[in-house]
Computed example of a mutant assay.
Amino acid sequence: MIIPKTSEEIELMREAALVVSKTLGMLAKELKPGVTTNQLNTLAEDFIRAQDAVPGFLGLYDCPSTLLTSVNEAVVHGLPTDTPLKDGDIVAIDCGAIKHGFYGDHAYTFEIGEVAPETKKLLQVTKESLYIGIREFKAGNRVGDVGFAIQDYCEKHGYGVVRELVGHGLGRKMHEDPEMPNYGRRGRGKKFIEGMTIAIEPMINLGTRRIQQLSDGWTIVTQDQKPSAHFEHDVALVDGKPELLSTFAYIYDALGIESNEEDEFRQKALIK
């Protein structure tokens, strides 16, 4: 059952999402060859708690960490380790936080040093597909419209669209209805309703869409060991249109990137 939120609840969810946004922005300043994902995990937990919030992943489904850090061929759910990141790696950092009883949950795939051109292109297309999907989250559309848009765009570039892992509704629970696949058929699935809040998160592979789980019980990797990218935003349906609750602005500030990609999805000015 889809749980629509009041305007007041949506604003509380925005605060939770921005805890995550600021955390990812802080981590962006720390990312460089030689840093370990365990170090990033410690920084993130301390930073989230300093914002009067609680790590959203830690303990959820027995998750042992604050961050999920997926390096190179890892798609999602990578556990932090003591292995140093190296030049040419990519790392998808997925982070959650709870504030005011609501979850924020979003992700960004970072480049470490000089990344191969084909990998850089994968990240670009995957992030573009995120906004293409968000654009379809509007009054009158259905779950399949978002999934179709993401799938169509990514497959035209020759990439594999993961089927087994999906986006989801978001609110007082990390995972609410509906599931939000990154593939589908137009006009199919549950209809979007005013006030619903979701996490849209393309998980796109450079090669095959096939995946497998490692023996740690968490990390999901591509079967062909080629890189995978993951980007995620929290979005609410407000006045029939998608309203971003999360932002990559803090990441871009840290990395010196100028972007207006979020402008069309933000009815309210972002509070820095």
Score class of each variant (00 low, 15 high):
1 M>A: 14
5 K>A: 11
5 K>C: 07
8 E>T: 11
19 V>K: 03
23 T>I: 00
38 N>V: 00
41 N>M: 06
47 F>P: 02
48 I>K: 02
51 Q>M: 11
53 A>C: 09
55 P>E: 09
56 G>I: 02
58 L>T: 11
59 G>R: 02
64 P>E: 14
65 S>M: 06
67 L>W: 15
67 L>I: 15
69 T>S: 13
74 A>T: 14
74 A>W: 13
76 V>M: 15
83 T>A: 15
86 K>V: 01
90 I>K: 04
91 V>W: 06
91 V>Y: 09
94 D>A: 12
98 I>H: 08
101 G>T: 09
101 G>K: 10
102 F>R: 05
107 A>F: 04
113 G>E: 08
114 E>H: 10
116 A>F: 08
116 A>W: 11
117 P>N: 09
117 P>Q: 09
121 K>H: 05
121 K>C: 00
131 Y>S: 01
134 I>C: 10
137 F>H: 12
138 K>I: 03
138 K>G: 03
139 A>W: 12
142 R>P: 04
144 G>A: 07
147 G>R: 01
159 Y>C: 06
160 G>C: 01
162 V>A: 01
167 G>P: 00
171 G>F: 14
179 E>P: 15
179 E>S: 10
179 E>N: 14
183 Y>V: 05
191 K>V: 05
192 F>H: 04
194 E>M: 02
200 I>H: 03
203 M>L: 08
203 M>K: 15
203 M>G: 05
205 N>Q: 05
207 G>C: 05
209 R>D: 12
216 D>A: 02
217 G>D: 08
220 I>L: 14
223 Q>I: 13
224 D>Y: 00
229 A>E: 04
232 E>N: 14
233 H>N: 15
234 D>E: 13
235 V>A: 10
244 L>K: 05
248 F>A: 14
250 Y>G: 02
254 A>W: 14
256 G>Y: 13
257 I>F: 11
262 E>F: 15
265 F>K: 05
272 K>S: 06
